[in-house]
Design a protein around this nucleic acid. Structure first.
Lengths: 117, 117
DNA sequence: TACCGGCCTGGAGTTGCTCCAGGTCAAGAG
DNA sequence: CTCTTGACCTGGAGCAACTCCAGGCCGGTA
């Protein structure tokens, strides 16, 4: 698969994929004879995972560590699991923030409503 | 109230408050005779609102517009309401992303679990 | 054979902070 | 009354995480 296809399959854009690769976040990408990147299904699955980790606010440093472990193979699964469990807590906090913000928004909207009546 | 107090009351940090003020996001702040900022309760409430809007991902350009309307007074409440309703939709999308990411995380964790058994 | 689209790299630009240097001023310690 | 400390000021540099762009290569088509 070429980079544009990997982009639409994973949700990341072409530049972001190149950027991530340069930062070591995308192991195991091969090149065709003329130097173009070729993405396997495994690569695309990995990119898709990165897409969702980023969408939920995982910092790049942690993604980097996660990618490093992934590149090292199955022996690192325990540590990778720990990283994802940690991230799950980040999600919790994000959800709380969203709830909190929704409350504040609704209160504000009520006040506006009252004013506009 | 001085800036450090406004910071701990609103959740924003001191530098962010100054930065927001410079960008026109914080109307109605006065200065003491020696040039230091003095924040009223209204200022602090406004900063707290900004804190939550930012925490839930409102882009600065929209915050700027929102602040501009706020500075213009009550005649702009209808438009301000529209901005917040719009933002509520952004929250929805964020929540969906979080749900989606949680799914993916859980599936991944199950796979790791299986592997580690 | 001339062009076109998709890829490449290296580097500049953007957003939204965050930190720092260098300076002012008020208030308390000695 | 001077000295020091701490909180504040401004302007500007630094940073994270992209995003875009210039300039160049290559394979396929008219």
């Amino acid at each position: 698969m070429r980079i544009s296809e990997a982009a639409s399959a994973s949700g990341l854009n072409v530049d972001t994929i190149r950027f991530y690769e340069a930062k070591g976040l995308v192991p195991k990408v091969t090149r065709s004879s003329d130097g173009q990147r070729r993405f396997s299904q495994e690569n695309v699955d990995w990119l898709t995972l990165l897409y969702w980790l980023r969408a939920s606010g995982m910092p790049m440093k942690i993604m980097q560590r996660f990618a490093e472990l992934y590149a090292q193979g199955d022996g690192t699964i325990a540590e990778r699991k720990a990283i994802l469990l940690d991230h799950a807590q980040r999600l919790e906090r994000r959800r709380d923030d969203l709830d909190r913000c929704e409350d504040i928004l609704n209160r504000k909207l009520e006040i506006y409503e009252e004013y506009l009546k």
